[in-house]
Simulated assay, not measured.
Amino acid sequence: MNTNLPDGWTIERVRSVSGDAEAEALTLERLVVVGRPDAILSFHDLCLARADGEWYMGQLDTDGSLV
């Protein structure tokens, strides 16, 4: 499980702030178009990926890749 959230953040805090009780941290073993992420969060149909200190928004493809 991915635990590389920014300092001071937990998945529970992400859920609380986002209002999405089902938000989850995803594993990093997937293709992500922006490069090599160090954190991936899932919010139903949307995902956030952090790579090189920047956050990107995308969706999971049927093969599990993030585009």
Results as ranks from 00 to 15, higher is better:
Glu12Asn: 13
Glu12Met: 08
Glu12Gln: 14
Arg13Tyr: 12
Arg13Val: 09
Arg13Ala: 11
Arg13His: 04
Arg13Ile: 13
Val14Ala: 07
Val14Lys: 11
Val14Met: 10
Val14Arg: 00
Arg15Glu: 02
Arg15Ser: 04
Arg15Pro: 03
Arg15Tyr: 02
Ser16Tyr: 12
Ser16Asn: 14
Ser16Cys: 02
Ser16Phe: 14
Val17Trp: 14
Val17Glu: 15
Val17Asp: 10
Val17Phe: 13
Val17Ser: 04
Gly19Trp: 12
Gly19Pro: 04
Asp20Gln: 03
Asp20Ile: 13
Ala21Lys: 14
Ala21Met: 06
Ala21Pro: 13
Ala21Gly: 02
Glu22Cys: 00
Glu22Phe: 10
Glu22Gln: 12
Glu22Trp: 01
Ala23His: 01
Glu24Cys: 10
Glu24Leu: 04
Ala25Arg: 06
Ala25Leu: 09
Thr27Arg: 04
Leu28Asn: 10
Leu28Asp: 07
Leu28Ala: 09
Glu29Tyr: 07
Glu29Lys: 09
Glu29Leu: 06
Glu29Met: 01
Glu29Pro: 00
Arg30Lys: 08
Leu31Ser: 06
Leu31Asn: 13
Val32Ile: 15
Val32Leu: 12
Val32Gln: 05
Val33Ile: 04
Val34Gly: 05
Val34Trp: 15
Arg36Glu: 15
Pro37Ser: 11
Pro37Phe: 14
Pro37Glu: 11
Pro37Cys: 08
Pro37Met: 11
Asp38Cys: 09
Ala39Gly: 04
Ala39Trp: 07
Ala39Cys: 15
Ala39Ser: 14
Ala39Asn: 11
Ser42Glu: 11
Phe43His: 00
Phe43Asp: 00
Phe43Gln: 03
Phe43Ala: 01
His44Asp: 14
His44Arg: 02
His44Thr: 09
His44Ser: 06
Asp45Ile: 07
Asp45Thr: 01
Leu46Trp: 04
Cys47Ser: 12
Cys47Trp: 00
Leu48Gly: 00
